[in-house]
């Protein structure tokens, strides 16, 4: 179950960031000055709803709790270090030693970890 759940969470995080950008008047103004019309901003809500409906309820709840605490509830792990709190992940972490799609939380800050390498 967790393989695609991590990707869904990452997608949700991207969409939430886009939503935040679209709520920032100055950023929207910059986009429009560059020539990008943003006439269907409301579509973002629909996309977020689609993704959250596919998420495991407990996992989504934990994501929401983390989102209350941190701007970024997810953090990349690079060279064994959580880039949310900059504390090393345990050496036995499956995310680090085996594959990218496992759900793991930082032991120190609790953020959901992902790899980009």
């Amino acid at each position: 179950m967790h393989e695609s759940q991590l990707r869904l969470l990452m997608f949700l995080q991207d969409l939430l960031f886009l939503q935040k950008e679209m709520q920032d008047f100055q950023v929207v103004e910059k986009y429009e000055e560059m020539g990008f019309p943003l006439d269907r901003k409301e579509k973002i809500e629909e996309a977020i709803r689609e993704v959250t409906e596919q998420l495991d309820r407990d996992l989504y709840h934990r994501f929401q709790q983390l989102a209350k605490k941190y701007d970024r509830p997810m953090a990349p792990v690079k060279k064994g270090v959580c880039y949310g709190c900059f504390v090393a992940a345990p050496t036995g972490s499956k995310l680090i030693t085996q594959h990218k799609d496992i759900i793991e939380f930082c032991n120190h800050c609790g953020r959901i970890l992902y790899r980009t390498d």
């Binding site: 997608f11 969409l15 886009l18 006439d39 996309a47």
Partner: peptide, 16 residues
């Protein structure tokens, strides 16, 4: 795959 989905969602807000 993820990037493609994200770019599509971005296009939905207004064409680039």
């Amino acid at each position: 795959e993820m990037l493609f989905k994200m770019l599509k969602k971005r296009e939905n807000l207004g064409s680039t």
